[in-house]
Amino acid sequence: MDDQSYHYHVMRRALDLIDAADGPLSLDDLAAQMQMSPAHFQRLFSAWVGVSPKRYQQYLTLGHAKTLLHDRFTTLETAQNVGLSGTGRLHDLFLRWEAMSPGEFARKGDGLTIRYAFTDSPFGEALTMATERGICGMAFTQETGRDAALDDMTARWPNADFIEDPGVIAPLAQASFTQKGEAALHLLGTPLQIKVWEALLQIPSGHVTTYSEIAQSIGNPLAVRAVGTAVGRNPISYLIPCHRALRKSGALGGYHWGLPVKRTMLAWESARADAG
């Protein structure tokens, strides 16, 4: 387990303690319950997010989503040109993406070779998949386990050939999480899904939007339910940031790989935005 994944597990344990507590936990309490010295615990948190454990607790609360909607709501322009290809920027990682043709989608992966591997990430173990044209899948196993995550992802392209290949996939995953270099994405979805996923790519790190705003941006304001379904079917979690889509009420909504992972992603990005 590398440092980033270890830090995630520390954060996850802290999140569970915070959720179970009646009120804020002191640095001493958190450190003691995780069998660490306060100084060591403080260093781990500060190194990971650039803020103190006390400040970070605020990002992990359920109310943080409402704060994000109030302070960092992203309005997606209705008139934006949402095509089937484009370029975008996520953090310092440059993304380029390409959508499959309707014929490719209809063949459900027939003729495609998809390589995959399980690697560490800041949010626990990740399953990353790629075709020769780019990353086509990313999932997180913390809540579901390896087998369920792999079954879920492979079922999306039932006619594809799958090869476990850490040698090819691990560098792609590492570049994605360290935000260095350029990552190519291969979007495998319906035209509506691809429009929704491209809209998600317009949301800056540390910011959020709503399902209704996404529906408006793709020119179909009444399709909120369909947008929610498309967000949930996003096969490339984190890189296509479906975790940044919230309900108008400020509720987190769903997250395919578990709400604790979504909350940690939002907290991680928000803390970095504030620290920067």
Rank of each mutant, 00 (worst) to 15 (best):
H7L: 12
Y8L: 04
H9V: 05
V10I: 15
V10H: 02
M11V: 13
M11H: 08
A14L: 14
L15A: 11
D16C: 03
D16L: 06
L17G: 09
D19P: 00
D19S: 04
D22M: 05
L27Y: 03
D28Q: 11
D28C: 01
A32S: 15
Q35L: 14
M36R: 15
M36V: 07
H40I: 01
H40E: 01
F41K: 00
L44Q: 14
F45T: 11
F45V: 15
F45N: 01
S46I: 01
W48D: 06
W48N: 03
V49S: 06
G50L: 07
S52Y: 07
S52I: 12
K54C: 02
K54W: 01
Q57M: 04
Q58G: 15
Q58D: 14
Y59P: 04
L62F: 07
L62M: 08
H64Y: 14
A65K: 07
K66I: 01
K66C: 01
T67G: 15
L68K: 05
L68F: 06
L69S: 00
H70W: 02
D71M: 07
T74W: 02
T74H: 06
A79P: 01
N81I: 11
L84R: 13
L90S: 12
H91R: 15
H91E: 13
F94V: 04
L95S: 09
W97M: 10
P102S: 12
P102E: 13
